[in-house]
Amino acid sequence: MAKVEVPEGLWLRCQGCSKMIFRKVLEENLLVCPECSYHYRVDARTRVGQLTDPGTFEEFNADLVSTNPLNWTDSIPYAKRMAAAQEKTGLTEAVLTGRAYIKGRSIILAVMDPFFVMGSMGSVVGEKVAAAIERATDENLPAVILTCSGGARMQEGLISLMQMAKTSAAIARHDTQKGLYITVMTDPTTAGVAASFAFLGDVIIAEPKAMIGFAGPRVIWNTVKAELPEGFQTAEFMQEHGYIDRIVPRADLRNEIARIIDYCGK
């Protein structure tokens, strides 16, 4: 069942154009508004279904969970927050990794989930991503990662920050072995994930209007105390400044990824 950021119901009001849309139509259209092309956020399982050849996804490391190394409690205990996220999403963590096929091309895939503690990266996300990339290197397959994340997971402290270094090191190894790595940035790709594996793709794709950036807009506003430019930190803004290769609507992602794989060999 697709989870969009709107209440359940047969009809919903589009967040982009405010028109009433039949939910089933939205879901059949890959959670993109048929009227205004607003790209809704997509949970990881649905995303895998949208992207890969049916029945080909074979998951890795499905059972990894965090040890809660800092024994963290903020407004609620971390363990409770995790349990709630697991309940809500049906996932154990904020990323799914595995082997899959896209239009018959074999790949190693990682898909992050925007609804699992904001797709934040702690030990498990770091480990699953690094392990998936190593697998891609060892099996000489392209790695494709769909990113969306609020950044490092504060509840695991510095361990989370270190996942940036760990995943990037795995990509360096993949790169040295001439492995192909494609990133698809989806809404939102920010902070620690943007500043590590998201921006390291050989080819960097983004979905239209996805928020992409390092510091949060509020933090920036607090520093500069000035109006932020129109469209600041969007996929289009990042492309204009030279950091995104292609902006690709969701419906074309399968095609685009397959095309790039064909150009890069493997």
């Binding site: 090191a169 360096a172 920010t190 590590s196 921006f199 390291l200 390092f214 510091a215 520093t223 500069v224």
Partner: peptide, 26 residues
């Protein structure tokens, strides 16, 4: 921390840090 500003984002602060994290291990 890295500078949180408009120009910092425009010039790809996330990209710059990411590249260092990829290159320093090798």
């Amino acid at each position: 921390g890295a500078y949180p500003g408009i120009q910092s984002e425009e010039r790809g602060i996330a990209h710059a840090i990411a590249v260092n994290l990829m290159e320093m291990p090798r």
